[in-house]
Write a protein that binds this DNA or RNA. Sequence first.
DNA 1: TTGAAAGCGCTAACAG
DNA 2: CTGTTAGCGCTTTCAA
Lengths: 347, 347
Amino acid sequence: MIKSFLEEQHLKNTITIQTIAKALQVSVSTVSKALNDSHEISQETKDKILAYAREYDYSPNPYASGLRSKKSKTIGVVIPEVGNSFFAAVIKGIESVARKKGYHVLIYLSNESFEKELMILNEFQAGRVDGILISLALETDTFEHIEKLLEKNIPTVFFDRIPHAIEATKVVTNDFELGYRATKHLIQQGCRKIAYLLYRHHQAMSNQRLEGFIKALEETALPFSEENLIDYQNANDKNRLKNALSLHAFDGIVISTEELVTPLYAICKQLKINIPAQLKVLSFCDFPLATVLTPTLTTIKHPAFQMGETSAISLFKKIEKPRQNTHPETLVLASEIIERESTERTF
Amino acid sequence: MIKSFLEEQHLKNTITIQTIAKALQVSVSTVSKALNDSHEISQETKDKILAYAREYDYSPNPYASGLRSKKSKTIGVVIPEVGNSFFAAVIKGIESVARKKGYHVLIYLSNESFEKELMILNEFQAGRVDGILISLALETDTFEHIEKLLEKNIPTVFFDRIPHAIEATKVVTNDFELGYRATKHLIQQGCRKIAYLLYRHHQAMSNQRLEGFIKALEETALPFSEENLIDYQNANDKNRLKNALSLHAFDGIVISTEELVTPLYAICKQLKINIPAQLKVLSFCDFPLATVLTPTLTTIKHPAFQMGETSAISLFKKIEKPRQNTHPETLVLASEIIERESTERTF
DNA sequence: TTGAAAGCGCTAACAG
DNA sequence: CTGTTAGCGCTTTCAA
């Protein structure tokens, strides 16, 4: 009778803790404890159970254990975009530490949409994940959903695109400083009319890089106005970018995100704008191709992998000691300017 | 008394179906059915319950419903690599259809490791996901784990890097043809000694692109030997690539994956090999930067987003009618060569 | 060192 | 149309 039960289980491929218990003539709780390496089970019994489990590829039902233990051994990662070298590398960093901890990583894409970010965070509230790592969507300019999330005390760490006004654990780069130094670098190389090219600018969202840009200009008594800002909303804005470049005779440009390198290089080629002779170019970007572009591109490359690692480590710290309501800290990772041909001094 | 129970629930932020039931003085099953929009509940009751649920941001516990219904409303996606434009776009395609279907997407990275792929698939067997979308790791050259997976009857669709020897639902590009045509293109442009640059070659893994390459050479009575194959295992092989290029005087090269474009361009620059005059270059690759490289790069760009969509649609078809054990089909998506400067005729 | 039993939140018979 | 109830597979007291 027991035999036939087991056969049925294997046929249905539904091997559970009970299958093992029956097969080995022990109780389910013994099996459970053995599988969780509890100290109250004898080595002998453990070995027997583990051997059986391994043989039949037992793997616990995550929904059952999640329901019972209120722990999912899963963290949720919300990013605005894949297809972006920076976020890709961050994910790798996160993965590498999650794996060591035996956690699963659930990746969600907000696609820069506030609406979607909202939905995702809402679902997290029901306990699908033990902790959250999030970088905000560009569209996000209101933060009630974030506050609601934090109220639920789900361990959360923000990285890169963070809600400045909210007190929370955050991991960022020294964006203000980088924006400032990037601009200073262009100025040092002789630029006097510098554009700042950004992607889908939102007035409401604080932009440290841009602040740094503005400060550098002002410090050097260079005028800053809306003219210096080129806001690239989508591929249609290629013409607007083209016009801006031909109208204003910029001699330097800071590209704030890697997606905009291609259109900028394309337009310069088309308009026969010589980089760096006529226009010096510097970009925040992470792809290795920067080193083989013509001219090679001066970049600010973030420690993306490290940011993933740091964020994840910080999150696990919170998950592991939830009562530690210490003052939330903001970790700042440094990144550096890598000078290449596109900002070489020519005049 | 009821009041205080509710207060407690809201304090603990644990709003469940029972909270709602008590608050509204109905039974849990009524609530459950109402939330699932069952026809057996009156509109009036539904409205009442939905209103309450919305007000208090109720969101069902995925572990409870997963356990009970044996459905997780989640699909698992296994890819070998992020930071690769192709897979990034595939993910977007998958996401877009999963979202429409109300499914979650669990993304796993195998990092090209067989070991990791094995672990991931093993965990899927316990029912964490309702279906699986997978592209194999480069290291994978044995397929028992795949067969075991398929035996469990978990709906699975393979894409791009597929197990050729196994009968299953697959979505691919016309790789053999593309390898063939890519090579033919180089030959037409005048190349007579063509290299094939690939990433971590495994003899055991069938490689349709390479087969196409070989066929094109043989058809043209050009000799094919191991010399034509440059196997790039890791960044250290940069020197090997350099040597191969300077020793063998290739006049054409097929790059089989986008990661290798940067090293190739870098080395050509360093060795002052003129593209396309001395060496014509063509790459399988998906990044937009191909259009601004110098010279612009002839590419074979896959319909990556569409591949994600197609795979997902195909998977949901299987999930929705599991008993449909029809003959598994292989969908072939076409992609085209986009000719640019790097393969222009010069001699 | 082991086992019995309760119950996590939800769904789905089945009964009313 | 609504309610009662029995589990899903697992963990975790508590008792033996």
